[in-house]
C-alpha cells in the first residue's frame, strides 16, 4: 500500500498545510497509442479524500484533465505535530490507494 502516494503535512501558526503527489497516468481516453493507433482507455483518479485524526478535511472530485502524477495541496485550521493524516484516492477502474502520515 501507499506506493503511489507521497505526502507531507506541516503545522505552523495553527494551520496545517498538506502537500501530496500521486503517481498515476491520468489517461483521458482521448490519446492514441503511437504504435498501434488505438485509443488508450480512460484511466484517471476520480476521488481523493484526506482525513485529519479520522475527520475529513478535504474531498476532491477530479476529471481526466488533472495532470499525470497529480499534485494536491491544501490547508486546514488546527492540527498539531504528531496528529494523523490519511490520504486516499480511487480511480475510474476501481483501483485505489491510501497513505497515513504524521503532521510534522
Amino acid at each position: 500500500m501507499a506506493k503511489t502516494i507521497k505526502i507531507r503535512a506541516k503545522a505552523k501558526d495553527g494551520v496545517t498545510t498538506v502537500k501530496s503527489l500521486i503517481t498515476h497516468p491520468m489517461e483521458t481516453g482521448l490519446r492514441k497509442n503511437k504504435k498501434t493507433g488505438k485509443l488508450i482507455p480512460a484511466h484517471f483518479i476520480q476521488e481523493v479524500v484526506c482525513k485529519h485524526n479520522g475527520k475529513e478535511v478535504i474531498n476532491c472530485e477530479w476529471g481526466a484533465s488533472i495532470s499525470k502524477n497529480p499534485y494536491l495541496a491544501f490547508k486546514f485550521k488546527g492540527g498539531k505535530k504528531g496528529d494523523t493524516i490519511e490520504l486516499s484516492w480511487k480511480d475510474n477502474t476501481g483501483q485505489s490507494d491510501s497513505i497515513t502520515t504524521k503532521i510534522r
Partner: peptide, 10 residues
Amino acid sequence: TLPDVSTRVK
C-alpha cells in the same frame, strides 16, 4: 479547511 487549494491541470 481554508479556501486555498492547489493542483495541476492539462
